[in-house]
Design a binder for these strands. Structure first.
Length: 424
DNA sequence: CTGAATGAAAC
DNA sequence: GTTTCATTCAG
């Protein structure tokens, strides 16, 4: 089929037999997505998502869909169809994926930003159809008690506590026999336990990089590496048994999510931690750049832009505030920013991503082994992996590199050596 | 600071 | 073709 479908099925409290469906339809032609990426760029603007009121990544601005409420089922189920076809009257630009990024970055105009802000406000308003769904309008946490087995091997969440803790970390052998249809590969089925008898269980299908706000953990997903690429949100790994908090929950508000950013701290607020704050601020910076033709912004992304544009309530604002606080802290504490003004780091390549993920487990598997020995093992392991298993890492590495190149092209520049010679 | 792995981009 | 540098942490 030409459409990516994503269905959110939510059982409502009042009518246990009725199922509310949220159907998100993305036209592949319109999105221009290649099969290799295949991740739905369908702006999953759900309140539980960090990108929800953050306008998501700016490269996806083109695909912000318009929402239509369609009563298609007489049995009281509402269906909202999101089609990317209908949202392009004003800004008929091509897909985010089109590689002509230099041009598009400079084509941001003020009215587009306003439009975006407006849309964010509308989407977060209580009148928004998205806000009507009982799933994320809940006031109480829900437990994840099960996940789908229908994922491809490399797309599986990492081994969870319940099943295999003694197993080595490689998920490549278990689920080989399951070869679901291509477009189903990126779908994750989750079962939530609301904790009350009358609510029953919630079954949800979502993208496997969908972020959830987990109690005591902050933003988490089954695929943190993809979540940071797709949504710009650094995530912990989510596990079965985690408690997902609805937006505005007290536990979410009081939670110090610095741990989330610790997983990402090596980037130290380079453009790579493109959270809601960064996306908006980078837009502001691009706007400024297009006006004044200034140099690369580096650290001084416009934080005022955040507070002005992203002032809607919700938990992502919380993350942003923490981000801001940490940015201030880092800036004052010195070592990072004082040493080098241009402190942009290279994005990790596929192997580095892989190594980072599994180094800890290997050091635990081989106690007393030197880190260098672990590197050898990791390299050995990497070479033995199939392309299928490497793909998620290469995919993410490519995305990281692409984003980095767009946002900070100079960061790849090598140090000047004296071998630089001019033409004879 | 060095090293051990791989990869990617800049020389 | 070569160099650099992304991560990680014991030495």
């Amino acid at each position: 089929s030409e459409h990516h479908n994503m269905v959110w099925e939510v059982k409502r409290n009042q009518m246990p037999n009725a199922v509310q469906k949220l159907l998100l339809v993305m036209d592949k032609r319109a999105s221009g997505m290649s099969d290799s990426l295949e991740l739905l760029q369908c702006n999953e603007n759900l309140p539980s998502s960090p990108g929800y009121n953050s306008c998501d990544e700016h490269m996806e601005l083109d695909d912000l869909p318009e929402l239509q409420a369609v009563q298609s089922d007489p049995t009281q189920s509402a269906m909202y169809q999101l089609s990317s076809d209908v949202s392009h009257q004003e800004y008929p630009r091509t897909s985010w994926n089109q590689n002509t990024s230099d041009i598009s970055e400079n084509t941001y105009r003020e009215n587009e930003v306003d439009w975006l802000t407006e849309l964010a406000n509308i989407a977060t308003s209580p009148q928004s159809p998205l806000m009507q769904c009982s799933f994320y309008n809940r006031s109480s946490p829900v437990h994840i008690i099960a996940t789908s087995k229908s994922l491809h091997s490399y797309a599986r969440p990492p081994p969870v506590s319940s099943s295999s803790k003694s197993e080595p970390a490689f998920p490549h052998h278990h689920w080989k026999e399951e070869t679901p249809v291509r477009h189903e590969r990126s779908v994750l089925k989750l079962t939530f336990d609301p904790g009350t008898v009358e609510d029953g269980l919630l079954t949800v299908e979502c993208k496997l990089d969908h972020p959830f706000y987990v109690k005591n953990k902050g933003w988490s997903s089954f695929y943190p590496s993809l979540t940071v690429v797709q949504h710009g949100i650094p995530c912990c790994e989510i596990h079965i048994g985690d408690v997902c908090l609805p937006p505005g929950h007290p536990d979410a508000i009081n939670f110090d999510d610095s741990g989330v950013f610790d997983t990402f701290k090596s980037y130290d607020f380079t453009p790579m931690d493109s959270s809601a704050v960064y996306v908006l601020s980078s837009m502001a910076r691009q706007r400024r750049a297009s006006l004044s033709c200034g140099g690369p912004g580096g650290q001084d992304f416009a934080r005022s832009g955040f507070s002005k544009n992203c002032g809607s309530p919700g938990s992502s604002q919380l993350s942003s505030n923490s981000l801001y606080a940490k940015a201030v802290k880092n800036h004052s504490s010195g070592t990072v920013s004082a040493t080098s003004p241009n402190k942009c780091k290279r994005p990790m390549n596929a192997f580095m991503l892989f190594a980072k993920k599994y180094r800890v487990e290997y050091t635990q598997m081989y106690p007393g082994k030197d880190n260098r020995a672990i590197s050898v093992i990791l390299g050995d392991r990497w070479k033995k992996m199939k392309n299928e298993e490497r793909r998620m890492y290469t995919l993410e590495a490519k995305a990281l590199a692409e984003e980095q190149k767009r946002l900070n092209p100079d960061c790849w520049k090598r140090k000047r050596t004296n071998s630089v010679r001019f033409n004879k």
